[in-house]
């Protein structure tokens, strides 16, 4: 099986959210459903010195969709089998005709990938644009990125080109689910497990 995955260059990412909105347009998503979410992680402090200020702060963005994990947390908990990992490309996809809308996958996924659609009564999520991929195209989000900070390819290729990093704060340890991603960290990036920052945009993800 070829396992496809995403490359996320957080050093380039300016948090513009074009990937998110291009996806929402292509997939015709409602306002509150986001297959791709952009997390802003920020922290640090300021020191006053007389009339002046000295910052020691950080912030950076991580654009996260579904990581199409090697050991996805969403699949084993699904009672209907709607949530499944495709054998041909390793993409994790929900069969919306089977899904009963129990939200177990959303509870289990540590990346917020399954996005419940209350109007439709079932789970939805990033499917890696597998139909486009089958045609030799990249997912819509990847092709949309103004800064070329996203890529999508077989994981072997991505790891060869960009290395093995798949965890950085505020993501969970990669050992939990084996996410099929490679991250190029921002210079401000904090290591996985860091708790000195906070999620700056909780209502946007």
């Amino acid at each position: 099986m070829t396992q496809y995955g995403f490359y996320i260059d957080s050093s380039k990412c300016t948090g513009c959210k074009t990937c998110q909105l291009a996806c929402k347009d292509y997939k015709d998503l409602d306002v509150d459903v986001n297959y791709r979410r952009i997390y802003e992680y920020a922290g640090g402090s300021w020191q006053a010195d007389g009339d002046t200020w000295q910052p020691s702060i950080f912030s950076y963005y991580l654009s996260i969709a579904c990581n199409h994990c090697a050991a996805p947390a969403c699949v084993p908990v699904c009672p209907s089998g709607a949530m499944h990992k495709r054998s041909e490309d390793g993409l994790v996809v929900v069969d919306t005709d089977t899904c009963i809308g129990c939200k177990s996958c959303a509870m289990a996924c540590p990346y917020g990938a399954p996005q419940y659609n209350a109007r439709k009564g079932h789970m939805t999520k990033c499917d890696g644009c597998y139909e486009r991929v089958a045609e030799g195209l990249k997912p819509v989000c990847v092709e949309s990125c103004p800064l070329r900070a996203l890529d999508f390819a077989p994981m072997e290729e991505l790891r060869e080109r960009y290395g093995n990093l798949a965890e950085v704060a505020p993501l969970p340890s990669a050992s939990l689910t084996g996410p099929s991603i490679v991250i190029k960290p921002n210079r401000n990036a904090r290591p996985v497990g860091d708790t000195t920052g906070s999620l700056a945009n909780p209502k946007e993800v």
Partner: peptide
């Protein structure tokens, strides 16, 4: 490449 706004033109 258009930004998030152009992609939301619809």
């Amino acid at each position: 490449r258009a930004c998030l706004r152009g992609r939301s033109m619809r």
